[in-house]
Amino acid sequence: MAFLEFRGVCATYGGPDVLHDLNFSVERNEIVTLIGANGAGKTTTLLALSGLVRKSAGSIIFDGEDITNLAPHKIVQRGIIHVPEGRGIFPRLTVMENLTMGAYSVGKVSEEKLEAAFRLFPILEERKAQPGGTLSGGEQQMLAIARGLMPDPKLLLLDEPSLGVAPMLVEKIFEALREIHASGTPILLVEQNAHKALELADRGYVIENGRLGISGSGQELLRDPRIMEAYLGI
């Protein structure tokens, strides 16, 4: 059985369904990416997984357990860590406090994890005592990712890590994602920057109007003419 599996998941914000019959999976040690246009349902898919959006049908299986209707904090306790779109830094908590909150589900921050995060993003160590709101967009994104690493995630969900980040820092962030994956953490990545995402990913799915379309390995999708036309602008 796959590590994470969506089985016919439909989701709703209270009105009509916005996700329809999603079926996909993420294996251990994989980077899987969901690409698609604005409003296609990428973010909603992640929110549904984290328990912040209600599922109207189907089930989500994680590590052999049905987590469909668990409360958000219960899902986090099972090791699914969501780095939200727009970074979601706590602006009036210091960088260090933000990291502490990242480790909330496991109790204390482990020194080891903290060091690893600072090695990945040295700038954060310099800014340790600064309020999160004073960081630049790229630094905030780094903080958000570092915060997501604090509880030693079993699966990392990343929502648009390149959004609103200077191009030079985007490179850095994707480099960091590669390193995180190399250390054995599977990643489910949602990106509008389809080219970068597909280069990094083992497999990809295209999501359109709340439904899954074409899927395949990252390289396959990069060469797929339909993808090239619609998402890569070639």
């Binding site: 912040l52 958000p72 939200p84 706590f90």
Partner: peptide, 11 residues
């Protein structure tokens, strides 16, 4: 400061 993200932290 941000209830939604706080929930994502496992709070």
């Amino acid at each position: 400061q941000n209830r939604k993200v706080a929930a994502l932290m496992g709070i």
